[in-house]
Amino acid sequence: MIGVVSALAVWAGAMWLNMRLAARDTAFARAVVPVVFGVTILVMWELLVRGLQVSAVILPPPSAIAQTFAGNLPTLWADFQQTFLKGALGGYVIGCSAAFLTALAIDRSDFLRRGLLPVGNFVAALPIVGTAPILVMWFGFDWQSKAAVVVVMVYFPVLVNTVAGLSATDAMQRDLMHTYGASPAQSLIKLRLPAAMPFVFNGLKIATTLALIGAIVAEFFGSPIVGMGFRISTSVGSLDLAMVWAQIVVAALAGSLFYGAIALIESRVTFWHPAQRS
């Protein structure tokens, strides 16, 4: 009972604090308000789980998750290496490069572009992660099959965005290149590739999340005894939910850092784009 009451008190207090903070739209408030909100959720979670004596096999309190996290760093690191560094990152690099090169290869052919763009858009909307059982069958249980799933998942979004980006220049800019008598290679390097970069990075950012999803879900279809998806499914089986949550914390950190890293490169490369200037 005390837990529930104090949870409500914390909620009320935090809301009052946030309202005071948000009354003025400062950079400080913008940074602090979401943090206060996040911490409030965690504290309430802790208090409610303890106060209502929720079983640890239903919802472990954050403190238990933190303990599990701190106590299993080697396991978490091994799983992270297997799933993120090998599966997700490996597949991401291969898939994105392949998509980029394909886009360049079909660039000169209007016919291929017309044909591939609708097909690519169609495939990009499909539940590609369903190819995981097939690819696991072909490439075995280890990270190679996970990388293969990631390759298939990231390929089409990056391809479609790059192709769209390469045709994003307007007629005037192309005419200008024409008046200089520029060769196709020159207008690709000087005009169309730089102009395509915002689109390319859009695809690359979408692909970061897809890569992690692909690598984790593919492990549900078979994996060696290491990996984030493997650990999640076995820990769920043994009702070790704190471990599952610890893995989800790792996935969340990895996902947002990965995305952040690509976004950072983007802001360096496309510093000139209106979206980056505001």
């Binding site: 946030n18 948000a22 408030a29 979401p34 919802l59 999340t209 999640i232 989800i248 952040g260």
Partner: peptide, 29 residues
């Protein structure tokens, strides 16, 4: 404005993380 400042950053961050990893746990719990 409070909701905007408090919730929106988390909604955006959630787009970058594979929240599908929660699926097996939700089913089993």
């Amino acid at each position: 404005r409070v909701m905007d400042m408090a919730v929106m950053p988390w909604a955006i961050v959630s787009q970058t993380i594979p929240i599908i990893a929660l699926a097996p746990m939700i089913i089993v719990v």
